[in-house]
Design a protein around this nucleic acid. Structure first.
Lengths: 182, 182
DNA sequence: GTCTATATTTTGATAGAC
DNA sequence: GTCTATCAAAATATAGAC
């Protein structure tokens, strides 16, 4: 098995258990590889695994979720396409956001830079669509942050209420909310 | 030291590290009590500590955060007062929400019921204020969920961006957003 | 590249003295 | 009620065979 093939499996474990709850044993079960084999790919252990997963997530964010924002379609359609991909990636809110999980506890000290960079990329990409739609840059930036907060919070609600209803409803109304008149 | 005095200190550890990252050693350091002394208060260990903390948080939620919602002041003032207390309790987004943290990983299986109950209490209390303000019950319920999602997501942004700016801005605009015309 | 075996550290938990 | 001492289990990590 190649290193590239194990990373999504490690990601799934981090998504379910968070950084401190994810153990090498759980990684071993998820990948089918023994402990020592995982250390062959990631000599620095869990920390290196999380860093690799975070890089993978950042790339997925760029290629899968944010790339529609840079198309030549109308702004509302670009945002709707992003949301459809978010809905799939997070499985209607049932799969956690790695940026949220890897900013808790000791993971916060380790990955603060990476998480902050990825979040800012998301915020700026979304804000640029609003600017294209004629919205003031400051307002655009604020609204982008608010939309991302709603998405992250909707994931929390999905976990806490054991229901995907709020997530799907919130996601659906985000495009119109973002593009409302100033 | 009484059991009641220990619980807020345990809460602080859970807020910083989450459920799996919170170890008995960290509880010992935070309280000044040795391991065995903590087991005197909580024979069932970490699980019982988290349950006690969650009960304490639920009571704080009721008494400190939600009680202003049931006053006889105008709806907008009731919500503003709740938000001021949220801002203090969560230290401008820097202190995590226990309901969010205790629904991750194996904690999710252990505390799903308690978390769901507390979240529903919050949602229903907030929605009832909107109904008082003349908003349709269904819309009120939806808006309450959206506001709580924004608050939870704003805490995630505070962690991820290492800044309280988004949290404070989002909190400030929530009362008007909740009470906007249908 | 994957494994078995093993070492080390940390964590959760208990017994029993004071 | 708090402690020291101790144990068992789990976690991280490494050595070395194939």
């Amino acid at each position: 098995m190649s290193k590239a093939a194990v990373i999504p499996q490690l990601m799934a474990v981090f998504q379910q258990y968070g950084y401190e709850g994810a153990s090498i044993t759980r990684f071993s079960e998820a990948t089918g590889l023994k402990r020592a084999s995982l250390y062959h790919y990631f000599p620095n252990g869990k920390e290196e695994m999380a860093a690799a997963v975070l890089d993978y997530v950042t790339q997925t964010l760029k290629e899968q979720l944010l790339s529609p924002l840079y198309s030549d379609r109308p702004p509302i359609d670009r945002i709707r396409t992003m949301n459809q991909n978010i809905d799939i990636f997070h499985q209607h809110g049932q799969k956690d956001c790695l940026m949220a999980l890897l900013s808790i506890g000791e993971a916060h000290d380790l990955f603060q830079g990476r998480v902050q960079q990825a979040l800012k990329l998301w915020i700026n990409s979304l804000a640029s669509v609003l600017v294209d739609a004629g919205i003031t840059p400051t307002t655009a930036h604020h609204r982008a942050e608010e939309a991302i907060a709603q998405i992250e919070g909707a994931i929390v609600l999905t976990r806490g209420l054991n229901s995907t209803a709020a997530f799907e409803r919130i996601l659906k109304q985000i495009p119109e909310t973002l593009l409302r008149p100033e």
